[in-house]
Amino acid sequence: MGKIFVFTLAALLAGSAAVGVASAKAADAAEDVQKLTNDSRVFRIDPSVQVRVVRFHNRYGIDLTGHLYLPGDFSADKKYAALAVCGPFGAVKEQVSGLYAQEMARRGYVALAFDPSFTGESGGSVRDVASPEINTEDFSAAVDFLSVQDCVDQKRIGVIGICGWGGMAINAAAMDTRIKATVASTMYDMTRVTANGYFDSADSADARFEMKKALNAQRTADYKKGGYEPAGGVPDTLPKDAPDFVKDYYAYYKTKRGYHARSVNSNAGWNKTSSLPFVTMPILAYAGEIRSAVLLVHGEKAHSRYFSEDAYKQLTGGNKELFIVPGANHTDLYDQMDKIPFKKISAFFADNLK
């Protein structure tokens, strides 16, 4: 059985072991709520916001680790709207998702920033593997966890996905009717860019065949050696002709601004063969069937802007919105507090998590 815990509010605030359970099943696997030690978050910490280390599991039995952020005026007598936050693709909770979660907690939400399966401090025996299905499931697992907490109103749960996890968040919202509102910030559709290349420049059956042939040859080589070849993260040194967006990634993942020792992008990158399922499993196929609210946020100057613009065209209903941030590039929405439209995001959740 996978691990889960449910805490009482008094135990949470004390940072002690969980002493309350929501069901007999949860009682069988109660875990500790831990204070955050060895803090390695890369963003400026707001001491008014409380944070705890939490652990939960997805339906594949993979243990996930998150940081649960609570408002500074947290009260055991209240039920809060809650948010599950993840991304960017190849980042960890000590980077962008933690910043978003902290800010949303500062604005009155319970917010869970978590490491996806196979990355960071989360479980999975193989490391640095991405999966369109499992990573979508990770969002729903975070909703599972939030929905049984004493401090959360389970009818007011939303998700925030950043970069590649923006696409996963939309996919989760298409599947999980418990998600009442979704924000996708500086979104990538990882299945589209993997299958078609940037701006669909390699969108052909022949191009995909050659890619699949090379990746399957890599599978054979990996199995033979008993390990997985990394694709390489953001380069340690930039070539002179590097595109601007690669320079932007470097400026975040490879400098003091955002480097983290557990981040896939800051280090060796994803396993090469992680790309295979992304070629044939498009994650936005049912985006048009989402009945809950969706806000897409993207930078005006972001190379990735077309992902949000095209995703918005797929969405239906009067509660969908595309918000373009003037002058912002892709990574500005990672950590630039003067660019990330938190006022807009907070108002969106206030309107849709009533």
Score class of each variant (00 low, 15 high):
Asp77Arg: 12
Lys78Ala: 15
Lys78Thr: 15
Lys79Arg: 15
Lys79Asn: 08
Tyr80Phe: 11
Ala81Thr: 04
Ala82Glu: 06
Ala82Gly: 09
Ala84Arg: 05
Ala84Tyr: 02
Val85Gly: 05
Val85Asp: 03
Cys86Trp: 00
Gly87Ile: 05
Phe89Leu: 07
Phe89Met: 12
Gly90Lys: 07
Lys93Phe: 00
Glu94Val: 10
Glu94Ile: 05
Glu94Tyr: 00
Gly98His: 06
Gly98Tyr: 02
Tyr100Ile: 14
Tyr100Asp: 14
Tyr100Ala: 14
Tyr100Lys: 12
Ala101His: 03
Ala101Gly: 03
Ala101Cys: 06
Gln102Phe: 03
Gln102Pro: 13
Gln102His: 04
Gln102Leu: 12
Glu103Trp: 00
Glu103His: 04
Glu103Ala: 05
Glu103Gly: 00
Met104Trp: 12
Met104Lys: 03
Met104Ser: 03
Ala105Lys: 01
Ala105Ile: 09
Arg106Ile: 04
Arg106Gly: 15
Arg106Asp: 13
Arg106Glu: 13
Arg107Ala: 09
Gly108Pro: 08
Gly108Tyr: 01
Gly108Val: 07
Tyr109Ile: 09
Tyr109Thr: 09
Val110Ile: 15
Val110Ala: 10
Val110Leu: 12
Ala111Thr: 11
Ala111Arg: 03
Phe114Arg: 09
Asp115His: 07
Asp115Phe: 06
Ser117His: 12
Ser117Lys: 08
Ser117Phe: 00
Thr119Gly: 00
Thr119Val: 15
Thr119Pro: 01
Gly120Gln: 05
Glu121His: 05
Ser122Val: 07
Gly123His: 03
Gly124Cys: 06
Gly124Ile: 04
Gly124Phe: 00
Ser125Gly: 08
